[in-house]
C-alpha cells in the first residue's frame, strides 16, 4: 500500500515541480475525505495540482470554471422534460463526478458558491424536490485567488469551514523555477498521466487510516491547541470542535503518508497550519507574508509533551 502511495506522490511531484510538502498535504486531505481549497495567485500551478491529483487517483473528474455569471444549475444540473417518458429527467451538472475541480471558486456569485458548498457538506443535491446522491467518493478541489483581487466574492467563514485544508503553493525556488521553465510539460502531458489508484484501493487506504492509533496524549494536545485558540487575545476566531476533529483526521492521514501507524505530535504540527489557519483568520490580506502567523502563535503556546498543564 505504501508503494502505491509512493508512486502516486512521485507522479504528482513530477508534474507539480518543487512543492513536495503541498502535494503531500493535498493527498493527505483527500485520503482523510476532506475537501481542499488551494489559494494562490494566478499562474502558480493551482490548476495543475488539482488536475494531476484527480487524474492520478483515477476517478471520474470534471472541472468547473467559476465565473461571475455561472448559475447554480450549471453546477448541479437541471431537470428537463423528457418527451419519451413524459417525465422530468435530471440533466446532471458537473458536480456529479467523483472529483470536482472548482476553479477560481471566489469569482462566482455567492448563490452559486453556496450551491456547491451545500453539495459538499451534504453529499447530495436536490433538484426540483428530488434528491440525488452524489457519487462516492466525492472530493472537491477548489482554487481561489487572493481576496484582494478585483471581481471576487470572498467565501464566508461558514463555507470556508467546509474545507478541511487551505493550502497555498507559493513561488517556486530558483531550481524549481528553472525546471519549470525548461520543461516541455504542457496541458497535453498532464492528460497523459496514468491513474495509479482505483476506487477500491482508495477505499482500502481510507479504511486503513481509520485504524491509525491516536493516543490520549495526542487528543490532549489537540484539545490544548483548541483551548488556546479560544483564549487568545488576537482577532483570531476560535477553533470549533469540528476543527479539532478535522485536525485529528488530517494528522492520521499525514501519519499514514509518513508510513507510521500511530500519530505523533509532529503530525499535528505539520497539518495544523493548513487545517486551522483559514478557520482562525478567514480573511487576511497579506497572505504571503503572515499566512501562518496565528496558527504558529497558537502552536508556540502549547507544550506537546505536557499539553494540559
Amino acid at each position: 500500500m505504501q508503494t502505491v502511495v509512493a508512486n502516486v506522490l512521485a507522479q504528482i511531484e513530477s508534474v507539480v515541480i518543487g512543492k513536495p510538502h503541498q502535494v503531500k498535504l493535498a493527498l493527505a486531505c483527500l485520503f482523510a475525505k476532506g475537501h481542499i481549497l488551494i489559494e494562490d495567485l494566478p499562474g502558480m500551478g493551482k490548476t495543475t495540482l488539482a488536475n494531476t491529483l484527480a487524474l492520478t487517483l483515477g476517478l471520474s473528474y470534471q472541472r468547473i470554471q467559476f465565473t461571475s455569471d455561472l448559475m447554480p444549475a450549471d453546477v448541479i444540473g437541471i431537470a428537463i422534460f423528457d418527451e419519451a417518458t413524459k417525465l422530468f429527467q435530471l440533466h446532471p451538472g458537473a458536480i456529479f463526478n467523483q472529483v470536482v475541480l472548482a476553479d477560481e471558486v471566489n469569482r462566482a456569485s455567492p448563490k452559486t458558491q453556496s450551491a456547491l458548498l451545500e453539495a459538499m457538506e451534504e453529499g447530495r443535491v436536490s433538484v426540483d424536490g428530488v434528491t440525488h446522491l452524489l457519487p462516492e467518493p466525492f472530493f472537491v478541489i477548489a482554487t481561489q485567488n487572493p481576496m484582494s483581487h478585483a471581481g471576487t466574492y470572498p467565501l464566508p467563514e461558514s463555507q470556508l469551514d467546509r474545507f478541511m485544508m487551505r493550502i497555498s503553493l507559493g513561488f517556486p525556488s530558483i531550481d524549481a523555477e528553472r525546471k519549470i521553465l525548461q520543461s516541455i510539460t504542457s496541458h497535453r502531458d498532464v492528460m497523459a498521466i496514468k491513474p495509479f489508484l482505483g476506487v477500491e484501493q482508495l477505499r482500502e487506504i481510507q479504511q486503513h487510516i481509520a485504524t491509525i492509533c491516536v493516543a490520549p496524549a495526542i487528543v490532549d494536545y489537540v484539545i490544548a491547541l483548541c483551548r488556546v485558540s479560544r483564549q487568545s487575545e488576537s482577532q483570531a476566531k476560535a477553533l470549533s470542535p469540528r476543527a479539532g476533529k478535522s485536525l485529528l483526521a488530517a494528522a492520521k492521514s499525514w501519519a499514514f503518508i509518513q508510513n507510521r501507524d500511530y500519530v505523533i505530535p509532529e503530525d499535528i504540527q505539520a497539518v495544523f497550519s493548513p487545517v486551522c489557519e483559514h478557520r482562525l483568520a478567514p480573511q487576511h490580506h497579506h497572505m504571503f507574508e503572515q499566512a501562518d502567523e496565528i496558527s504558529q502563535q497558537i502552536l508556540s503556546q502549547v507544550d506537546p509533551t505536557n499539553p494540559l498543564l
Binding site: 505523533i264 505530535p265 504540527q269 502552536l299 508556540s300 503556546q301 507544550d303 506537546p304 509533551t305 505536557n306
Partner: peptide, 25 residues
C-alpha cells in the same frame, strides 16, 4: 511522563531549555 518532565526541568537548570512548542523528538 513525570520522569520526562523532571528531566526537562533538570535540563532547563543547565541552560538546555526546550522551547514550548518543541515535541520530544
Amino acid at each position: 511522563k513525570a520522569l520526562y518532565l523532571k528531566t526537562l526541568k533538570l535540563m532547563a537548570q543547565h541552560q538546555l531549555v526546550k522551547a514550548r512548542s518543541m515535541t520530544a523528538q
